[in-house]
């Protein structure tokens, strides 16, 4: 037990939490934007997966940032497709979302096979690139807390810092700009927005595209940083956990971030624990993030009922 606590309190572990949180945070913020305009994007998982593969393949032939942009664009495109089917053709958003999730699960393997010339599992023989890490080792010069800060903050992906900035940017957008006000109005009570001359479906389209872009970025981070390359089903439910983070975060950017960090923490824990608890089967440990998601959602919905 002491060993576990010592691990959790170590700077290395905090840095690991930041790393595991980044992709979930991107996807969660995407989910938040779609939820706030009233069409919760349940395809985050599939979009992340497609974003990851796109980023890997493009980055093999172009600079890393073009790879990231390609992941983002693929996500945005999928968001637009969802908007088309859901808003124009009036298909149920859940069904559209699951169609994309299913297409992503199978489609990425097919495309991977073509891209690698036969490998159905990983992109190991594609020379894909990584997102560079931001070196903040000068922080170590600060007396006392310097070394700890350096351990925690230095060496993270550029995208991690972008994700943190997005929390602020989305909060500013939603709560400080007129467009954000309209966004929230559409999500909370569409007739009021309509009466005010706002077209709800246009904002829903923007919301879905933005959520796709963010999920695509999450996918790019997943395949271009700590592990470079694509493996089949590498998102492993992170897109669904992100949905949980949106609901748990009470539809607020800060709340969503806290929820994403919570899930990132348990993911990092499930990575660190097998080294410590050698007697426990690894599979059981890896279920921790999902069990926590279910528990957190149960507790939060219970509070809503009694609140």
């Amino acid at each position: 037990m002491n060993e576990i606590i010592a691990t959790i309190l170590s700077a290395t572990f905090v840095a690991a939490v930041i790393r595991t949180t980044t992709p979930i945070l991107f996807a969660s913020l995407g989910g938040l934007l779609s939820d706030l305009v009233g069409s919760l994007n349940v395809a985050l998982e599939g979009i992340m997966l497609i974003g990851a593969l796109t980023a890997v393949i493009v980055s093999a032939h172009a600079p890393w940032y073009i790879g990231v942009l390609a992941g983002l664009a693929a996500g945005g495109l999928l968001g637009a497709v969802m908007a088309l089917f859901h808003l124009r053709f009036k298909a149920d958003i859940i069904l559209v979302g699951f169609a994309i999730n299913i297409i992503a699960a199978g489609g990425t393997v097919t495309v991977l096979t073509y891209a690698t010339g036969g490998d159905k599992g990983t992109s190991i023989n594609i020379p894909s690139k990584a997102v560079p890490a931001l070196d903040l080792s000068f922080l170590g010069n600060i007396p006392a807390i310097g070394p700890f800060l350096r351990e925690v903050l230095s060496g993270h992906s550029y995208l991690t810092w972008l994700a943190a900035f997005m929390v602020y940017a989305i909060w500013y957008f939603l709560y400080r700009t007129p467009e954000g006000l309209r966004f929230r109005a559409v999500g909370e009570y569409p007739p009021a927005a309509e009466a005010a001359g706002i077209a709800p479906n246009r904002l829903r389209t923007y919301g879905l595209i933005a959520s796709g872009c963010l999920a695509g970025l999450g996918g790019a981070q997943l395949a271009m940083f700590s592990f470079v390359g694509f493996t089949r089903d590498m998102t492993a439910g992170r897109g669904f956990i992100a949905l949980g983070a949106v609901l748990l975060g009470r539809r607020h950017p800060i709340g969503t971030m806290i929820a994403a960090v919570l899930f990132g923490f348990f993911e990092a824990l499930s990575i660190a624990l097998p080294g410590i608890l050698k007697w426990m089967p690894g599979e059981l440990i890896h279920t921790i993030p999902f069990v926590v998601t279910v528990l957190a959602l149960m507790l939060s919905s219970r509070r809503k009922v009694t609140a």
């Binding site: 006000l181 929230r184 109005a185 909370e188 309509e194 009466a195």
Partner: peptide, 8 residues
């Protein structure tokens, strides 16, 4: 039937 956003 009013069209107001409750939390605004």
């Amino acid at each position: 039937h009013f069209s107001l956003v409750p939390s605004f």
